[in-house]
Design a protein around this nucleic acid. Structure first.
Lengths: 199, 199, 199, 199
DNA sequence: GATGAATGAGGATTCATTCAT
DNA sequence: AATGAATGAATCCTCATTCAT
């Protein structure tokens, strides 16, 4: 059963996740989070023992979201690897575009943002995000295998480096959108990703 | 003529650049910088009017370094695009490896780190780094053109998306090294970059 | 209902007002204020967003005090303009005397102190204090009108310049007390004020 | 003989005096002074041992200026007390007006500014300025005596309180100009001063 | 006679966190 | 289940002052 406290915790988590996405870890403070969630600061600490714990929970929240709302959805929508790849980029673009229209900024990828900012000073967070990307890698691995099976990629295509490259291009796409403050940079990266998968 | 002050300023700049590379902008404070440079905090402010100005100068310092020590050097060493690509990745790997052996961390790319952390809150810095990547794009554009001319890439290879993809893969490589805290991730990204360029 | 926080805020305000009276704006720091109020510096900032805001609130606090505790009280005590003038100077003298006995200094007038120090660099504060003196002017205007009605002043006495002069003499009295570090300078200014009003 | 050093010292002094007039003591720093004087900060310290000493010298400089350029000049221009009073106010207004047109601010009276800001924390400066006002008092005392002799004031006019009042009105005039940020406030105070002297 | 270079101490402000209620 | 109130420690930055040259 969902108690009132569960709902409060969930609200804090979602508000925090949204803010951690748009701002840097150090650039976001607990005051802003509690105010945006409409609760007292002490309430936040009642559910999450520290800012770091909240950030970790936000990461996990994103992970669930990406897996279920994007990767699972895409897998269910089509078997075609290229179509899947396109759908993924469309989804990332749409999310970025929505933030851009609302806030005028391109937030990038929450995993990349956090790990880039904190990897060298917070091993726990780095390890957590490494785990998230392992599962992202599984999605791309399936994609590569499907492409081979469906004859879209040559049989000798190296799986390891292709998966690696697809993740890199995806992360690079998010960074490009931040650098140029333009959501379209994400879509413009699709040809490169497609070529990695198919040629 | 190089005065004592010039040398002090240069020392502060290099120390700051090194630290901004290894730590996040917000995670690094002016105290640490001044101590590492062996000068008083007020001395730092005597040469750089603010933390932001110092970070901007550090960015410019990196930009010069990358252009002259890496891209120019590589261009002078060989005309072969694939060899050039390999040399670039070797250089990035070597720099990362050196830090890793000394500090146990993978610092990633200073441009990517800064822009990822600060793009949404500091337009000046974002614009500055955008300019840096414009020049990085010029290098990759030459690479693509050379590859076409030398018959290493097909004539119909799309220049725009390939340059974009090569930058993305490079940035993705730095991020992968941070995520896995492993310098080798940079070298392991080379095959993907090579395929983008040649196939 | 008066909460604990309200009381803390009021205590901070009164302590700050008292200190801003005795010391210059720049010569007083937030540390001293928070310590004198018996709270942490961050607590002060929890109630007042900046030193300037606190100074402005202190000004308003003095304004209320002067209007209610001095001008209103005097008006209620007597209808006689000269008696009112004397009571006002007595009140200013008594306040100055109290500080003098306690601290050995003549603090002057908080409005004059602040505006003299900050008028050229802080337009908001200047405007605020201008508003306070507008209301002081209203008191003196009533005084002049009463004096005319009661035949204590000639009918052709110029209201404007007399009000202006009475404010100037009052402010000049506070300054004289600071210059000579002697509370009695305030009382010694009464004859001049009286002549302005009646002759 | 006037050495190069003498000229430098004089330039520093005049620049400092001008700046101390327009800004508060704490609001003006030694950097600004040395830059405005076109010399190195250490040069300033070569001629004046401290900021306080420089301020004291600036006060003395103003004192000389007021005595010779204003009071002596006025005395030489006319024997008529009221004309003298008017000339003094005209001079103060002209000086204020000049600053106002150049900087958009009313600087007030340097003696009043300094003593108001620093009297409670700097006894030496307070005493110095007290001495300046003693000599200002002498001017007004002469004025009152002349007025009596010339039948412009009644013989029983109290000298003490009138001198006191004239100084107060003059200081109050400067403060009024600061409060309203309007040079004309000085001229508008003339009627009150005149009435103190003559009625 | 003048300056380039440097600094110790302090100043306003912020932040993650705690605890009594 | 939630909050009002409070804080220790830091953070960016400034300033009067010094000294070797």
């Amino acid at each position: 059963m969902v108690t009132k406290g569960d709902k409060t915790k969930q609200r804090i988590l979602e508000v925090a996740a949204s803010l951690f996405w748009k701002r840097s870890y150090h650039g976001l403070n607990m005051n802003t989070i509690s105010e945006a969630a409409g609760v007292n600061k002490a309430t936040v600490y009642g559910y999450f023992p520290s800012k770091e714990a909240l950030a970790l929970a936000a990461i996990e929240n994103y992970h669930q979201y990406v897996q279920t709302q994007i990767f699972d959805t895409v897998r269910q929508a089509t078997d075609h690897p290229i179509a899947q790849l396109e759908m993924v980029y469309q989804a990332f673009h749409a999310a970025t575009q929505a933030v851009y229209e609302h806030d005028g900024i391109c937030p990038g990828c929450p995993f990349v943002n956090m790990v880039t900012e904190l990897a060298t000073e917070n091993p726990a967070l780095r390890a957590k995000i490494q785990g998230c990307f392992d599962r992202v890698g599984e999605f791309y691995r399936q994609l590569v295998r499907s492409a081979k099976q469906q004859g879209l990629a040559t049989a000798d295509l190296d799986e390891e480096s292709t998966v690696r490259g697809l993740i890199a291009v995806m992360n690079g796409a998010f960074i490009a959108s931040k650098i140029h403050n333009s959501p379209d940079e994400i879509l413009k990266m699709l040809p490169a990703a497609r070529r990695l998968l198919t040629s």
